[in-house]
Computed example of a mutant assay.
Amino acid sequence: MSGKDGINVKDFLIGGLIGGIVGSVTALLLAPKSGKELRGDLNEHVEVVKEKGAQWKDVAYEKGIEIGNVAKDKKDALVDSASGFVGVVKDKSGQLYETVSKQTKTVKDTAVAGVEATKQAAQKAGETFKSEAKDVGADVKKAADKSKEEVEEASKTAKDKTEKIVDDAKKELKK
């Protein structure tokens, strides 16, 4: 029963009661009355405070009983609900276990078949790759030989042109 600011109802009621008593006593002590009148007024106020305290005690007791009964009813309802929920969870978990067991077997069988198919496909791909690699190797050798011939020819042409340029340059220098 805490408020937003952390003050509970009990502390508030005690503070209100003490504040009322202090205020009443201060008012009576500062009032211009005779001692007999003052004592009479004090006795009246004390009686009023006692009555209010008794009323607040009774109200708090009744509210406590009401809250206790409501809490007991809610607890009973929650226990009943939880019991039903536990039964449902047991049934569903049993069904789930059976389904998972069946699915696991199916997945295992599929995985085994998949592994075998993958092995066969890998072997076939390896053989195909080997065959094609030989063909590609022969093609690469032919292309390399052709490139070598072209490079030699280009090199010879470049050499001839360079010699011609050098000869022309020598002739020019002699002039």
Rank of each mutant, 00 (worst) to 15 (best):
E66N: 14
S83W: 10
E98T: 12
A117S: 08
K142Y: 00
N8Q: 03
E152Y: 02
T157Q: 08
K171H: 03
W56V: 15
Q95K: 13
K63N: 06
K156A: 08
G35C: 01
L96H: 02
A54F: 15
L30T: 11
N8W: 07
K92F: 06
E98M: 11
A133V: 12
A138R: 10
I14N: 02
K174L: 12
A143V: 14
K10M: 00
A71Y: 06
K52T: 12
E98V: 10
K159D: 06
E149G: 11
K72E: 02
E62Y: 11
V107C: 08
D11V: 14
Q120K: 15
I14Q: 03
V107I: 15
L42G: 04
I165D: 11
K159S: 05
T162M: 11
D168N: 10
V136A: 13
S101H: 09
K130L: 05
V89P: 01
E172V: 15
V79L: 12
A60C: 06
K130F: 04
I14S: 02
V22Y: 05
I14M: 09
S81N: 12
A121H: 00
L29N: 05
G87W: 12
A121N: 08
S147H: 06
A144L: 09
V9K: 10
G84T: 07
H45V: 10
S131W: 04
G84M: 03
T157W: 01
K171I: 03
K50I: 12
A122P: 03
K161I: 04
I65F: 05
E66Y: 14
V48Y: 13
T162D: 07
G15R: 08
V100Y: 05
T26W: 08
T104G: 04
A60R: 10
D109Y: 07
A113R: 13
A71S: 14
L96C: 09
G53W: 09
F129C: 06
P32W: 05
I14D: 00
E172G: 14
T128N: 08
V48S: 11
D41G: 02
K170L: 12
S24A: 14
L28N: 06
G53C: 13
K142R: 07
I7P: 03
K108P: 00
F12H: 07
T110Q: 13
A169L: 04
K146P: 04
K174H: 01
V70R: 11
E152Q: 12
G53L: 15
G126N: 10
S81D: 02
K170T: 08
D11H: 05
Q123K: 13
E47G: 14
E47R: 15
Q95I: 15
P32F: 06
D11C: 05
A154M: 07
K52P: 02
E127M: 00
K134H: 05
I21E: 04
A125Q: 06
V46I: 12
L17I: 08
L13S: 06
A133P: 09
S155I: 00
A113T: 13
E150I: 12
F12D: 00
A111T: 15
S93A: 10
T118P: 00
G68C: 00
K134M: 06
K33M: 07
F85C: 01
K170Q: 11
G64H: 03
Q103E: 09
T118G: 12
K156P: 00
N69V: 10
K50Q: 10
T162C: 07
Y61S: 09
L13G: 01
K119C: 01
K148P: 08
V22H: 04
V25C: 02
S101N: 13
A31D: 01
L78I: 14
N69I: 09
